[in-house]
Every structure is written in structure tokens, then in C-alpha cells.
Design a protein around this nucleic acid. Structure first.
Lengths: 299, 299
DNA sequence: GTTTTTCCATTCATATATGAAAATTACAGC
DNA sequence: GCTGTAATTTTCATATATGAATGGAAAAAC
């Protein structure tokens, strides 16, 4: 285990090293980077040979970093940061009103709100291609995993430009079909007799209800689902009463709003991008399209 | 000229970018990096495509960086520095008393002094392989272009460990053959009647002689050569009187020292390595061998 | 104790990147 | 105006790296 040659080390191996160190396994790193697992394994081995040091202990559950690897993570991160700066600086200096733009949005927004906005944008600017990442995980704008993010909270990362577009109201909804069958609740107390749809792992509805004086627990719900789009499909299918964005529910003829005077929280909607990209023509164009297109959904 | 894909950029392209930016041409960068020039050209193009920016203006005399390229050089250097830190940290944690060690020395020292030292070292430590770079240019110890440097001046770079081994005396010498034919100078004035061997571009001897009151000019010399080893071969072949390291001349039976009472300068001899490597077993072993082996040559 | 899951290593066909040599280009000097 | 020089680009055979599929091993789940 010693570098027998004194040849320069391929910088791209460090990227593989970081991905493996971050995820703790070759397979995980492969999923995250899009590079295949055998390739990552070979690259790690190659880096170990080049540095003359074992970097990971191969274990059944993954690769555990050695002391040496731990010592190398910090400079590797600096490399990554510098690489990001290169990409962002270069992208920020682009002047064409065309090219790819990657947008991150929650799966709910991506599924129900963005498609018409992007359709219109594509008609107006056919040169701009959009990569839409529907994910509730916050992609890292600093590493250019995304160019523009639509978020339901105030972004707090450094070097970001963020704009508060407005607030998305929440409402309580059920399918007309369901209400015709199960009856329309007239008070908060009536809810106890209804099928409520909730989340499985997330506790947000439960906490919200409890804060409003309802004795909600995990078992209070007849049906639970963690996927927002599927959750919403359950509501539309008449599985019971659920919560969702007010604009979405009110625009849906199959659905009826249930107003019991609860003051439901509102979700702030933010647009965010990296400071280097804000003035880039095609990014600015998409930014404006999103801001304009989202406005009718917000209050 | 716009990145049509949004795929991650290969980090190793930045190394090519830096080499080209530093040398100002693909050919120069190829010479410096050991990568072929067509490959570098392709890598630069590839980086330009990935970043969506032209980085160089192709000119007949080389590649001139664009404004964008100039903006990217600084983060690229940070990447390079971080990569160096990775390599140095990893190398510094190696514990085996074997592996490659790259030594830089002036061509004179490499040719006349180091061979016996390295021969003995190799006998004692066959696991250590040595890359000897005979070059008067100072390789960059920070970027691990060399592990140990033997230098005739005090190294001043940051993060270096340096040790002053002693001083190499200079002397005035000529081949016995030459002196038998042309006579032995008894005074400084006699030198005017002799064939003096000097440097072509370097003025060091001229300045040294002038400082000692001799009316030396470029034309004072009958023969000039910039290569130290060739210069010394000229002296040994009886072409005339020249200057060289005292220990070298005195050990040579074909050569006679000419002592006219001039107080010639001495050259300080330094050993230098990166701080991270000083304690590494095989580096320390070579360091010690060099220190011990060079001692007899110095005063 | 058996099954299932999760992960890493290997194999082999394919895609990609590389280098040597030749072709090309544009200036500089005479 | 021609030639020489020093660069880049192109071409093509070769070397290298990659991914899909497979095999294998060790924990976790039942």
C-alpha cells in the first residue's frame, strides 16, 4: 500500500472520495453522483494507490473512512467549494438567453403548479431548457445542484438571493363525493366522526391540530401517507378530510372546502438562487416567469 | 457556446485549464504537465463547453485567457492548493520505509556529488526509489513537484523545513595539461595572458571578478558555456582556467588548483522539504543520507 | 435458523480518452 | 513575396475507463 509511482493525482478522484465519504458506501455514492458503483470503487482504489494510503475500511455495511481519510475531508471540501465557485462564476457570466436551467421545487408544487407556468415559459423562450427536480430535500444551491429553488421557508444559506413571493394559504378539503356520503362537519367536534387523512412519519398536521386545541394523535387518522401528491389524490378520491393548499382545492370542482373557523397556518413561498446567477439573462428570465406564474396562487 | 447539458464538470479539466493559463500555450502546458498537447486542447474545449464560456482566444502564438478565464484563475488556484494539501497530508502519513522520493538538485550536484550518495542509499534501503531531477529551476515543493531539494540558497517559501548543511567553497582550477602548456599564473595580473572560461548569459563570474578588482568583461573569456557540467568538462579537458567547487577540483587528479589569494565566495548548501513530509520515514531516511553524504563536500 | 436485504468485487463488451504523426494556420524576418 | 517557425487542429490506431450483469458475503429481519 504505497504509491510506487510519483505521477500526479487525478483531481476528479477527489470528487469520488468525497461522495463515498459523505454517503458511507459505494452504492450510496453511486446513487447520489450518477456514476456507477464499480467505477466509484475503482476510483477510490486508484486514489488510495496514488496517495499511498488506505482511505476506507471495507465493511459489509459500507466503507468506513480511515484516520487519513478523515484528515483529507477538509481540504477535499475546499476543493469542492472552489470548483463550485468556478462553475457559478462561469455560469454567472453567460449572456445568452438560452441554455439549461435547473429548478427545484417540492413535489406538490412541481406536480400541480409549475407545469402550466413552464409550458408558457417554453413557448416564449424555446431556447431555455428546464430541468425540474421534484424533491422535498433542499438541493444545495451553493454546489449548483440547482439554479433556482421554490421553497416553503426562508432560505438562510450564505450567498443566496431570495425573494418572498407571498404566502400559500392552507385549507381543509374533502371530495364532494365523500361529504355527500359522510356528511358535512359543522364544528370542530364533528371531525371526530370523520375519516381524517394524515401523514405517516411527519407530525406536522398533528402538531398543528394540537396547537388549535384538538386531541389529535397518530391514531386519529384513518389513512396516512407521506407523499404530498398521493395524499392529495387520496383526498380527491374521497378517502376523507385532509389539508392542502387553498388555491389548489378551490380550483378543483371535485373538492369542497370545509371552513370551521380554524385559523390554519400559511406557508411562505420563496424563490432563491445563487447571487452569481441572479443577473444571468436566462436565470433572470425563468425567475421572472416563476414569480409571475406563482403570484395567482398566493395571497 | 453554451452548456447544453447540466452535467457535473470534470474536476481534472481545471488542472489543464491552469496549466494552459500559466504557460500561455497548449504546447507549453503539455511540456510542463506531461500530458500531450492535443489532449490539453480537447480538455480546454471540453471545459469551455461545460462552463458555457469561452476561456481562451486562440492565437498563433498561443492561447490568451478571456476575462472569464481570468476570473476563474483564482478559485482554480485554490483548488490546486487544496489538492496539494491532500497529497502532502497523505504522503506525510505514510509509515513505510519504502516508496518513491523525488530529489531536486542543480545539475552540477546531481552529476558529480549525488551518484555515490544515492548508490550507498540504495544499497542500504532498496525499498526506496529515487527520482532525481537535475534542474537549476527551483521546483515547487508546495505542489509536490519535488520531495527534497538541494539548493545553493536559503529557501524562503512558506511551510518549508530547511537546513543549512554548510558551505561549498569555490576555487580556481585548470587541467594540469593546460598549465604545463600555458604556464602557471603567479598573480592576478597574469590571468590576462590566459584562456579563461566563462559563462555566456550569466554574469556571475564577471561580477565576482569585478568586485575583486579585475577588469573582466564578457570578452575577457576565451570560451563561454552556460551549462555547469559542460563548463567543468571544458576545464578538465584543458581549455583554460575556470571556477568550480573546491572539493570537486581538489579530488580530481587531472586538475590543479590555482591559488592567487583571491577570496572567492562560498555557496551555502541547503536541504529543504515540505513540513508535512519531514517526519515521513522514507523522506527522513533520504534526508539523513543526503545530509551525511554532502557533509564531506562542505566546509 | 432461514430468508431477505444490502452492500462490494469481478467480468466482459462497449464507449471514451489518449498520443503520435500529419495537416493546417498565422505571423515574423529577410 | 517567400520562407521559417511555432503554434493549433485533425486523423486514426490504441489504451483506458466505464457500466450492466453477475457473483458472493455479511449483517438484519423474520
Amino acid at each position: 500500500m504505497n504509491g510506487k509511482t510519483l505521477s500526479p493525482v487525478d483531481w476528479s478522484l477527489v470528487r469520488a472520495f468525497l461522495a463515498v465519504a459523505d454517503t458511507g458506501s459505494l452504492s450510496g455514492a453511486a446513487r447520489r453522483t450518477g456514476v456507477s458503483q464499480p467505477t466509484l470503487g475503482r476510483q477510490v482504489r486508484q486514489l488510495e494507490a496514488a496517495l499511498g494510503q488506505r482511505l476506507f475500511d471495507r465493511q459489509p455495511r459500507g466503507l468506513a473512512p480511515t484516520d487519513t481519510a478523515r484528515a483529507l475531508i477538509e481540504p477535499a471540501r475546499r476543493m469542492q467549494a472552489a470548483m463550485s465557485e468556478i462553475e457559478l462564476t462561469a455560469a454567472g457570466r453567460q449572456t445568452e438567453l438560452s441554455g439549461p436551467v435547473r429548478i427545484t421545487a417540492s413535489d406538490m408544487v412541481a406536480l400541480h403548479v409549475l407545469p402550466p407556468i413552464l409550458a408558457e415559459l417554453h413557448t416564449a423562450e424555446p431556447g431555455i431548457t428546464v430541468d425540474l427536480v421534484a424533491s422535498n430535500a433542499s438541493e444545495n444551491l451553493l454546489f449548483r445542484e440547482s439554479d433556482i429553488a421554490v421553497r416553503m421557508y426562508r432560505p438562510r444559506q450564505l450567498d443566496l438571493v431570495a425573494r418572498h413571493l407571498g404566502d400559500a394559504e392552507l385549507g381543509m378539503f374533502a371530495a364532494r363525493r365523500y361529504l355527500d356520503r359522510a356528511g358535512r362537519p359543522r364544528s370542530v367536534a364533528d371531525l371526530g366522526q370523520h375519516s381524517m387523512i394524515g401523514y405517516d412519519r411527519s407530525e406536522e398536521i398533528i402538531r398543528g391540530m394540537q396547537a388549535r386545541g384538538l386531541a389529535a394523535t397518530h391514531d386519529w387518522f384513518a389513512l396516512r401517507c407521506d407523499s404530498h401528491p398521493v395524499y392529495w389524490a387520496l383526498v380527491r378520491a374521497g378517502c376523507g378530510i385532509g389539508f392542502g393548499q387553498a388555491t389548489l382545492g378551490r380550483a378543483d370542482p371535485a373538492i369542497e372546502e370545509i371552513d370551521l373557523g380554524l385559523d390554519l397556518p400559511v406557508l411562505p413561498v420563496w424563490l432563491a438562487t445563487h447571487r452569481s446567477l441572479r443577473q444571468t439573462p436566462r436565470i433572470a428570465r425563468v425567475w421572472d416567469a416563476l414569480a409571475a406564474g406563482l403570484a395567482p396562487w398566493l395571497s
